[in-house]
Computed example of a mutant assay.
Amino acid sequence: MSRSQCARCLRPQTHCLCPLIPSLDSRTRVLLLQHPSEVNHALNTARLAALGLNNAELIVGEVFEDLPQRLNQPGYQARLLFPADDAQPLQVYAPSDQPLLLVVPDGTWRKARKILHLNPLLAALPRVTLAEGAVSRYRLRKAPGPGALSTVEAIVQALQVLEAPTSFELLLKPFEALIEGQIAAMGEETYQRNHGG
């Protein structure tokens, strides 16, 4: 017997996050390019970000045929949020006269790199990066390194820089509820054994 699912947040109806998802405005346009393997992931944080931001769009795929049109948004300068040696810190753009179209690949690091490889136009975009040393609230996985954030956390951090003093912390409310729910489902003892200090 399958559990009924919320059509909006894709969570089981009994664990729907919609009441916690805000409706936030931003000057920055966020384009999330999600690898198909992430769509049914229990912690689909890119979807939470797209639902919570009025100026965001989530597209699922590996190759994006309409990328030239999507990147050429009048009034926006497109930047890829992805590490690189020549990536500029987001502080360079804040506050900017021209808002950014922030392109965010969503998937494991390997899958995100594959999206870039399959879409040369994307790989050619100027890259921006977050400040170093951010600590993830994603307590259910071992981060591959310092500063490794979930997609929604990276977007919140980017918007906090680009649109200061506006706060985007409300975007993290459904994410934190999701984490708490996962911990509750596995039980405190299991959580401590697998993820505790």
Rank of each mutant, 00 (worst) to 15 (best):
2 S>L: 13
2 S>I: 11
2 S>N: 14
4 S>E: 12
6 C>D: 06
7 A>K: 14
13 Q>D: 13
14 T>P: 00
15 H>Y: 06
20 L>S: 13
20 L>N: 05
27 R>P: 00
28 T>W: 00
31 L>S: 10
33 L>K: 08
33 L>M: 10
34 Q>F: 04
37 S>I: 08
39 V>Q: 15
39 V>G: 04
42 A>I: 05
43 L>T: 09
46 A>T: 08
46 A>R: 05
47 R>C: 02
51 L>N: 04
52 G>S: 06
60 V>H: 01
61 G>I: 01
64 F>Q: 05
65 E>Q: 12
66 D>E: 15
66 D>W: 06
69 Q>Y: 09
71 L>N: 07
72 N>I: 01
73 Q>K: 10
76 Y>W: 05
76 Y>V: 00
76 Y>I: 02
77 Q>V: 08
79 R>C: 04
81 L>F: 02
84 A>H: 10
84 A>I: 00
88 Q>R: 14
90 L>R: 06
92 V>E: 15
94 A>I: 01
94 A>S: 15
95 P>L: 07
96 S>E: 13
98 Q>G: 03
99 P>I: 02
103 V>F: 14
104 V>Y: 13
110 R>E: 11
110 R>S: 13
112 A>L: 05
115 I>K: 00
118 L>E: 11
120 P>G: 03
123 A>N: 11
125 L>G: 08
131 A>F: 02
133 G>Y: 15
134 A>R: 14
136 S>Y: 11
136 S>K: 08
139 R>A: 13
142 K>T: 14
144 P>E: 11
145 G>H: 15
146 P>T: 12
161 V>M: 03
165 P>C: 07
166 T>P: 00
166 T>H: 15
167 S>K: 07
169 E>T: 10
170 L>P: 12
170 L>I: 00
171 L>Y: 11
174 P>A: 04
175 F>S: 09
176 E>H: 15
178 L>V: 06
179 I>P: 11
184 A>K: 12
189 E>I: 09
190 T>L: 13
192 Q>E: 10
193 R>L: 14
193 R>Y: 13
